[in-house]
Nucleic acid binder design. Sequence first.
DNA 1: TGAAAAAGGTAAAACGTTTTATGCATACTT
DNA 2: AAGTATGCATAAAACGTTTTACCTTTTTCA
Lengths: 333, 333
Amino acid sequence: MKSLSIKDIAVKAGVSITTVSFIINGKARDKSISEAVIKKVEKIIVESGYKPNQIARSLRTGNSNIIGLIVEDISNSFFSKIARLIEDKAYKKGYKIIYSSTENHIEKAKELITMFKSRKVDGYIISPIKGLEEDIQQLMADNKPVILFDRNLPDLDANYVGADHFKATYHSIESFIKQGKKKISLVTIDIDVQQITERLTAYKKALADYDIPYEENLVLKVHFNQDEKETMVQMEKLFQTEEIDAVLFATNYLAISGLKVLKQTGKKIGNDFSVIAYDDHEVFELHTPGISAVQQPLEEIAETVIQLILSQLSSKTKLDNQHIILPAKLIER
Amino acid sequence: MKSLSIKDIAVKAGVSITTVSFIINGKARDKSISEAVIKKVEKIIVESGYKPNQIARSLRTGNSNIIGLIVEDISNSFFSKIARLIEDKAYKKGYKIIYSSTENHIEKAKELITMFKSRKVDGYIISPIKGLEEDIQQLMADNKPVILFDRNLPDLDANYVGADHFKATYHSIESFIKQGKKKISLVTIDIDVQQITERLTAYKKALADYDIPYEENLVLKVHFNQDEKETMVQMEKLFQTEEIDAVLFATNYLAISGLKVLKQTGKKIGNDFSVIAYDDHEVFELHTPGISAVQQPLEEIAETVIQLILSQLSSKTKLDNQHIILPAKLIER
DNA sequence: TGAAAAAGGTAAAACGTTTTATGCATACTT
DNA sequence: AAGTATGCATAAAACGTTTTACCTTTTTCA
């Protein structure tokens, strides 16, 4: 049941391997192969169902038509939706995606890059974590296209596509303030990437601009890799001990955990307790009452990422790194 | 910036390529290479950070250490959660996953298989759709491990891992009946795979067993690939025109669409209108009131799938096909 | 008419591994 | 002392492509 090789086709057609290869790769006219031969070989290829062995092709050409996608957690709806969009668009251009989740482990992330390297992926799409700077730098030094998305590493000059988290956060807090909220809490994670820390900066800035004093104990920094149970305990404490009247959750899973806590403790969301979540999710739409959420432009992010990487892949010369910041929208519910 | 090859290591160590290869692959003692040489070469490998080129390795050995995963839609939380679990477990055994979504398009599914084939993936994990029988048969004839999951193709004798949808559906309907419901509706899709049609069979059986007449107009079969908008229109009609007192949604996205309709139309879930969803989702847990749901044992499904495929991959002889049906749980909320 | 160019094609090297077959010492039997 | 293991190591083929360099025949045109 061995599959056909280019040699089988060559023999069947009574021409050389070279000729078949030229035809397969559309170089036939260029290399002045006669129409008759082209037709004949093409016919045989179609009839026999021959498909070139991509492995052999990759070994020879050095590229794999595979793009590596590294995210924090593919089962998070934000990432799985982006992944689906990216996959879709890449597929149309003849690229496949290999994805993997880092689970916020630097060691796993490094291993993944090594593995992708040895698999000779053509390019990398990475939602990075702190500590990966050197490895990414190395990839770029090797002239591999790299696109960071969602999260950025400040010490690194790389292509980046993401949403305007500062503005989105600022507007969220502002909207709380305009509703008359005074005790506004921020629940975030202690991960050290710009896109997360920015949310804290924007929070502080908005408060300052409206002359509301910043209180440290209104900010909960959850450890990025801890168990959900523990997170919920911490949130419960926060919700109980302070007379908070509004909460902004910095990620969708934090918001979901938060909603679980509220449901368990019977605390109601309403006029004297408002909530905004970061990254929209069906949960927020269907929740009673509806939960306002910051919605990132998934489609545009995916589109931009894939466009960026494709242009890098097709360009011979190294292109300048771009930073593309797309607006995020506050969906009020 | 060319990466190191086995030849570079061989030269550096002053031994042959063969020797290095044996050492890399743990065959050194077998081939009686001296300890001294092993140590020396290993040291050089570590120091230089050499990683074998997987492409070349694949070309030579004929296997890629990659498993292809084909699902309907990776952005569906059921699949993305399974994918994450599978990826995780596969990773630990040295396998990578390439995934792709069929979007229920038979053509795309076929293309994906062809693509995976030309990429020489070692095995296939597929949530299949009708019409793929022949292609899958072909894979098995080629002696490639294939595991179907979630959905089964009745005309095909293949490995299958899935939940007991008949029982789960039966129990769901039974629970409605025991609550005194009389007009029980089923919202399902018109896709022709056993795991979906089974839900209809179980629905009918449960009604029959409790002497409730089956009414065709209480069953809504949504077209599997239609726009959500259209689905919602159909559901709205169903909910309005019949005095339905209970609904079972056959998939989680149908349930989510259903909840959206209910929210829009202001119809309340409660004592005189109950809902059960298929495949649990955070939405159902956090919804007010909580939505009962049939929960498939994701972890066990993933574990079984990966175990099955790994045992096939490591066994020289073709193993008998297995059908593994795991119990699903009705979570009452 | 003769040289140059074009048309039509191919042989063979190369990509980086794994693996088979083989070689040469040295040590162990009898 | 001859024969046979055994320890240690390697040369070279093979996997299936792409691509470079080259060859022959025909056509062009000064």
